[in-house]
């Protein structure tokens, strides 16, 4: 076991104070997360007691004021919208990072990056508003009524692409310059350098970018609420409206009472579970990969 006093070598008083206060802050940060989870459990406890966990899967549909609490279709909504966005945004983000680094002239590259940084800073409600006013009517003309899984996927793609691009860009910038010089000296073409050297060495960084984007897409609420249509159903194709778990909470929480309210906290708990599941899967994949590449 690590001894708590001996990992600070200095015996000076100020060092002791510093290390103590830093530990205190770290414990607080960790404690807050535990508190959030505890709060979610506490608030959804009436639902777990009164309704029972199985009914969130086995009820015919979601009519909370009518005692019907199925959450499955919203879990699907969240998963499909997130997966779709990650599938679109990953190639877009990584390719634009590569473009910025290896293909674009320096001036263009700098401006391009600025633009993407700006895109990353736009609040989600603005994306949602734009989606509602521009994107949804466009999709509506093509495939009525318009608010749909497709609109959600596109908006989320726009929102997480900058994250993926910027993190990829940063990790590509950390590739040792010697690698690039060596591959040039060996006569690699630009693309085979990217494919055989850059991408393998930056794999972890790209992965982190995708993970961050994924987390943002899972938790996004406002934009999705505005463009997805929010009809509770498991979508059968891309142009069906869907409701995500986050949208469900935002739509109904303001006026929910009693069991309905507890059921909404339950959807928060489901979302939390999804995030834990996705992040831990991603982490374990990452460890496997590190192991393989370390061999």
């Amino acid at each position: 076991m690590i001894s708590f006093s001996s990992n600070t070598l200095s015996r000076s008083r100020s060092d002791f104070l510093l290390s103590e206060s830093v530990r205190l802050l770290a414990l607080t940060a960790g404690g807050l997360l535990l508190l959030v989870v505890a709060f979610l459990f506490h608030e959804s406890w009436p639902a777990l007691q009164g309704i029972g966990l199985s009914r969130f899967f086995s009820d015919p549909d979601w009519y909370p004021t009518d005692n019907s609490y199925r959450l499955t279709s919203m879990v699907w909504g969240t998963l499909l919208a997130t997966t779709g966005a990650v599938l679109f945004a990953t190639p877009l983000g990584i390719l634009s990072a590569l473009f910025c680094h290896f293909y674009a002239p320096p001036l263009l590259s700098r401006w391009y990056r600025r633009m993407v940084e700006l895109l990353a800073g736009i609040p989600s409600v603005v994306f949602g508003f734009w989606g509602l006013m521009v994107l949804v009517p466009l999709i509506g003309r093509w495939h009525p009524p318009g608010p749909s899984l497709m609109a959600g996927v596109l908006i989320l793609t726009l929102m997480i692409m900058p994250t993926i691009m910027l993190v990829s860009h940063a990790s590509i910038a950390h590739v040792p310059i010697a690698y690039i010089h060596t591959t040039s000296a060996l006569g690699f073409s630009r693309w085979s350098m990217i494919w055989h050297v850059i991408l393998p060495t930056t794999k972890m960084g790209l992965f982190t970018g995708i993970l961050l984007g994924l987390a943002r897409a899972l938790g996004e609420t406002m934009a999705v609420l505005m463009v997805c249509g929010n009809v509770v159903q498991t979508p059968s194709h891309l142009f069906d409206p869907v409701r995500t778990l986050t949208a469900n909470i935002a739509l109904e929480m303001a006026y929910a009472l009693g069991d309905h309210r507890a059921a909404l906290f339950m959807s928060g708990l489901f979302l939390m579970g999804l995030v834990v599941l996705v992040v831990s899967t991603a982490e374990s994949l990452r460890h496997q990969n590190t192991y393989v590449s370390a061999k």
Partner: peptide, 11 residues
């Protein structure tokens, strides 16, 4: 509410 066939649900 079960009778309603909605295409969009709003807040």
């Amino acid at each position: 509410n079960r009778d309603v066939h909605a295409h969009v649900v709003i807040g």
